[in-house]
Design a protein around this nucleic acid. Structure first.
Length: 561
RNA sequence: GCCCACAUAGUUCAACGGAUAGAAUAAGGUCCUCCUAAGACUUAGAUGCAGGUUCGAUUCCUACUGUGGGUGCCA
C-alpha cells in the first residue's frame, strides 16, 4: 500500500476505535467485541475522501440506530496530528472523512520520489508462484483463445510481481501422448499423399495447411527415402523433424506478443525421468485406486470427485497422469507455494480430478488455483464464426497480430474479467482499432510529455516542490486526479487477489479520463511559478503512474502520437 | 439428465453487501485567437423472472428462463 494512503487509513481506523472505546468507557454503549469495518473510497466525491461504515456494522452490537452511533463516535473524534481535516455523518450512517491539503501534497511527492517503484508492495510476502499459461499444443499454430490466455497470464504475472510475489512464468509443452501420435499420423499421411494416390485424411486428424507444409519440407529434404520405411520409423522421423520447428515457432510468436517464459517445461521430461511412473506407484500406494476390466482407476469418489481411468487396459496412461505428475513436480519437487493455471473453460471438468489426485498424494490441493477463462468467440459481420482447429480454419495468433497492433491486442484482451464470455469483433479490432481504449490511455501519456517538452523549450524544467506549493493543487479536477493516483497500490493488490488484471486496464482508462479532465480545466504553461511547478509535478506523477501500469501490461507509453 | 460459468442502456463492459447503478460506443447539441480535438462539456437510455437472507441486494441463497462450455479407457 502506498505509504501515504496506508498512513491515512490507519489514522482513520485508530480514531474510530478510540472513539468507540471511549464511548464504552463512558457507559454510553455496552462493552462488546468491536468487529471490523470498511474504509472505502466513495464514488461520489461529495461523500468525502474516505467513507466508513463502522456505525452501520456496529448497529446490532451497540443496540442503536447507525446514525445515533455515528453521532456518539464523531463527538469523540480527535483529528490532531493526522491528515484528516473534517468528517460528517451521511446517508444511512456513513461517516465521511475529508482530508487536508497535506495529504494531497504528500501523495504527489511520494509518487515523484518513488518513480518506477510506485505502486509496488510486499503484500505477497515473496511467496513463490508458478504461473502457467497458454501451453498451446505444439501440434499446430496458436489460436485466438491462446491470445487471450497469453495476455491474461502474462499481465497477471506482472501484477502479482508488483504485489510482492515471486513469480515465474511457465509454458508446458505437450510433446508426448495421443496428440503427438495424431500429429505423427497426420504428417505421415500428408507425406505419403505426395507419392501415392488415394490416401484420405481421417476425420480426427489435423487438416491444417501447416501439416502439409511440414510434409513438403520434409519431402524436399529426404525425398521418398521414408516412403517404404515402416510406419513407426517414418512417423518418428516426421515428428522429430516437425515438432522442434513448431515449438520454435511458438516461442517466436509469443516473444513477438511480448511474452517471455522462465521455463519451457516438456511433458516428455516427466516420462524420461520416471516421474510419471512414480506417480502411478504413489497413487496405488495411497489405496485410492482399483482395477476394473484391466484398466487402473482412481477412486475420485473418495474425494468428492468422480472415478476416472489412470491407465488404460492397453497399458497406456491417460493424459491425467502426466498432468498429476506435472503438478506434483510444481508443488512438491520444486516447492512452489502456489501454482496458478490459466485454462480455457473447456477444461473445468478436469480440475476436480486433478485436485482429488493431488490430495490423495498428500499435496495441499488449495495450492493449485485454476483460472478458467471463458471461450473467445469470433464475431464478424455480426455473426459468430465457428472456430475449429481440426478444419484448420481457426484464426491464428499470428494472423491476429498481423492485423491488430500488439498494444491494442494486449489491452483489448485484458479489458474483461477472465470469467466473462468474450466476443471478439474482428471488424472492430481490425478496421476501427482506433476505438480501442488503449489509444485513449496512450494519448494522455503523449499529452503530458508534450507539456513537458513545450516547457523545456522555454527553459522551464520540473523541480521539487515544497509542501505549500503542492497545496496549491486545490481544483476539483486536481483532487480527483490525485486521489486516483493514490489508489494504485490498493488496485494492484485487489487485482492480484482476484486474479483479475482487467482491473488494471480499467484503472488506466479511469486515470486517463481524470487527466484529460484536468487538462481541460487547468493549464500548466503560463501559470505563476509556484502553481506551474506544482502542476508540473502532478503531471509527472500522472505519467509515472501511467507508465508503471502500462509496463505491467507490456504496452508502450508513447512520448508523442 | 447431471456439473461449471454467464445474464446490467440499442451494443461492448463497470460497480470489496452500501448513498443518486458508472463508463465507452451508437443517436442529438456545444467547445480549438488557449500546453496535441486520438480531447472536454451536454441531452436521452439498463439490473432476465419469482421468492428468501438484513438496517440495506446488481452483488449472497433457492427455483425458473435464456446463452456458452463440460460430462470418453480424446487432450
Amino acid at each position: 500500500m502506498s505509504k501515504i494512503v496506508s498512513i491515512a487509513k490507519e489514522q482513520i481506523e485508530k480514531i474510530i476505535y478510540d472513539a468507540a472505546n471511549s464511548a464504552i468507557a463512558d457507559g454510553v454503549f455496552a462493552p462488546t467485541e468491536l468487529g471490523a469495518f470498511k474504509i472505502e473510497t466513495p464514488s461520489n466525491r461529495e461523500h468525502g475522501d474516505y467513507a466508513v461504515n463502522a456505525a452501520m456494522v456496529w448497529s446490532k452490537a451497540f443496540r442503536n440506530a447507525p446514525r445515533k452511533i455515528a453521532e456518539e463516535l464523531t463527538a469523540r473524534f480527535d483529528f490532531s496530528n493526522s491528515y484528516i481535516k473534517s468528517c460528517e455523518i451521511a446517508g444511512p450512517g456513513f461517516i465521511n472523512f475529508f482530508l487536508g491539503d497535506k495529504y494531497y501534497a504528500d501523495i504527489v511527492s511520494d509518487v515523484v520520489s518513488s518513480g518506477e517503484e510506485y505502486g509496488r508492495s510486499d503484500f505477497g510476502q515473496g511467496k513463490k508462484v508458478l504461473l502457467e499459461f497458454v501451453s498451446a499444443n505444439p501440434t499446430g499454430p496458436m489460436h485466438i483463445g491462446n491470445a487471450r490466455g497469453g495476455a491474461l497470464g502474462d499481465c497477471l504475472a506482472s501484477v502479482m510481481d508488483a504485489a510482492g510475489y515471486y513469480v515465474e512464468r511457465e509454458f508446458y509443452i505437450n510433446d508426448a501422448g495421443n496428440q503427438i501420435n495424431k500429429f505423427g499420423l497426420s504428417l505421415d499421411l500428408r507425406y505419403l499423399q505426395l507419392y501415392k494416390e488415394g490416401i484420405e485424411m481421417p476425420e480426427d486428424s489435423y487438416h491444417g495447411a501447416d501439416i502439409i507444409a511440414h510434409a513438403e519440407a520434409f519431402s524436399k529434404l529426404y525425398g521418398d527415402k521414408y516412403v517404404n520405411e515402416t510406419e513407426e520409423v517414418r512417423r518418428k522421423a516426421l515428428v522429430e523433424f516437425a515438432l522442434p520447428k513448431n515449438i520454435e515457432a511458438l516461442r517466436y510468436d509469443l516473444q513477438k506478443y511480448r511474452i517471455e517464459y522462465n521455463t519451457w517445461f516438456k511433458e516428455s521430461s516427466l516420462h524420461n525421468s520416471g516421474e510419471t511412473a512414480k506417480i502411478i506407484d504413489l497413487l496405488k500406494q495411497s489405496g485410492h485406486t482399483y482395477t476394473k476390466e484391466d484398466a487402473l482407476w482412481f477412486k475420485g469418489s473418495d474425494f468428492d470427485s468422480e472415478d476416472f481411468v489412470l491407465v488404460r487396459s492397453n497399458g497406456v496412461p491417460t493424459y491425467v497422469v502426466p498432468d498429476i505428475a506435472y503438478h506434483y513436480n510444481k508443488l512438491v519437487t520444486r516447492g512452489f507455494d502456489k501454482a496458478i493455471d490459466v485454462l480455457g473453460a473447456d477444461h473445468h471438468g478436469y480440475v476436480p480430478r486433478l485436485k482429488a489426485a493431488l490430495t490423495a498424494l498428500g499435496v495441499d490441493a488449495t495450492k493449485l488455483d485454476v483460472l478458467l477463462m471463458q471461450m473467445v468467440r469470433l464475431v464478424k459481420d455480426g455473426e459468430v464464426i465457428k472456430a475449429s482447429k481440426r478444419s484448420g480454419k481457426a484464426i491464428t495468433l499470428v494472423t491476429l497480430l498481423d492485423e491488430v497492433p500488439i498494444d491494442a491486442a494486449r489491452f483489448f484482451f485484458n479489458l474483461r474479467e477472465p470469467n466473462s464470455h468474450f466476443d471478439f469483433d474482428l471488424d472492430l479490432a481490425v478496421e476501427e482499432s482506433n476505438k480501442n481504449p488503449v489509444y485513449y490511455v496512450q494519448y494522455a501519456c503523449a499529452r503530458i510529455c508534450s507539456i513537458m517538452r513545450n516547457l523545456e523549450g522555454e527553459g522551464v524544467t520540473r523541480r521539487t516542490c515544497s509542501e505549500n506549493e503542492l497545496a496549491l493543487l486545490t481544483a476539483p479536477e486536481e483532487r480527483e486526479l490525485i486521489l486516483h493516483i493514490a489508489a494504485l497500490t490498493d488496485e494492484i493488490i485487489a487485482s492480484a487477489k482476484a486474479y483479475d488484471p482487467a482491473k488494471m486496464t480499467h484503472y488506466a482508462v479511469e486515470l486517463a479520463t481524470k487527466f484529460h479532465k484536468f487538462y481541460n480545466a487547468c493549464r500548466v504553461k503560463g501559470e505563476a511559478e509556484g502553481l506551474l511547478q506544482a502542476r508540473l509535478n502532478l503531471c509527472f506523477a500522472t505519467v509515472t503512474v501511467i507508465k508503471n501500469v502500462l509496463s505491467m501490461l507490456k504496452i508502450n507509453a508513447p512520448e508523442s502520437m
